[in-house]
């Protein structure tokens, strides 16, 4: 059993274990910290910045920052919410997110976060970048229009599948996901790979199963993302 570490989050004392990240420890205590590039079971990435919290007044990504004794974390505050809203809106305008025909709609974590934050339209102008689609593989396709560069596929392929199917190439706004070959079909990607299930948006999807669950009955259609974590929170006063 790891050593217990007490810290504060939004004015509430929380107990975590030494070595845990703020995001993990908060989650166990029923405090949801919004996130996109983080996925349980993968090493943290710290790239989307959606999990940014104020730690003793300084911004830090909750997924990469370990808890420490007496740390004061600000998660649910207007300024943190505003930052997260801005980041989510940035991701929307930087890609081509056509939710109305995306198979992932309703199960998409980016969309779900926008719902959770009550975003009706981004304040930033849409960029409409030109992006490539790779449908070469028989069972999986990549639609880079929807990619938010969270790197979950990169890490899942390396850390869980023991492969190296995906990697980032380019830099700045030209950064994109590439595959280990000319096209996805040239790689050893398989539909059973963890990487095929790792994408939070509709950028990497399995073929042929898009509408097994109808729109309206999907994960985030009725309840906000993070509700499962928040359900673990002990009732006030108990």
């Amino acid at each position: 059993m790891s050593q217990s570490v007490m810290f504060m989050i939004d004015g509430v004392q929380v107990e975590g274990r030494a070595g845990q990240s703020i995001l993990e420890a908060a989650g166990e205590a029923g405090v949801y910290i919004p996130r996109l590039c983080y996925k349980e079971g993968l090493s943290p990435h710290g790239s989307c910045r959606v999990c940014t919290v104020m730690v003793n007044g300084r911004p830090m990504s909750a997924c990469t920052s370990p808890i420490s004794l007496g740390m004061i974390v600000e998660n649910d505050s207007p300024r943190v919410a505003q930052l997260r809203r801005d980041l989510i809106e940035m991701l929307f305008v930087a890609g081509n997110h056509f939710c109305m025909f995306c198979e992932k709609s309703g199960d998409c974590e980016l969309q779900a976060l926008a719902y959770r934050f009550g975003i009706t339209a981004p304040k930033y102008p849409y960029m409409f970048p030109k992006r490539e689609v790779d449908a070469s593989h028989p069972d999986i396709f990549i639609d880079r229009n929807r990619c938010i560069l969270c790197g979950r596929c990169v890490r899942a392929s390396k850390e869980l599948d023991g492969k190296n199917v995906f990697q980032f190439v380019g830099r700045s706004a030209e950064k994109r996901i590439a595959v280990n070959g000319e096209a996805l079909a040239d790689t050893d990607a398989a539909v059973t790979d963890a990487a095929a299930d790792a994408c939070p948006v509709g950028a990497i999807l399995k073929k042929g199963v898009g509408y097994v669950v109808p729109v309206g009955k999907r994960e985030y259609d009725d309840k906000p993302i993070g509700s499962d974590i928040e359900a673990k929170r002990p009732a006030a006063g108990s």
């Binding site: 790239s47 560069l149 700045s172």
Partner: peptide
């Protein structure tokens, strides 16, 4: 900055483009 951002994190990769715009 738009050219030299590594593109890893959202605010720098996207935000600087928006700032310039």
């Amino acid at each position: 900055f738009v050219e030299e951002s590594c593109g890893y994190c959202t605010p720098c990769r996207v935000g600087n483009v928006l700032l310039r715009e």
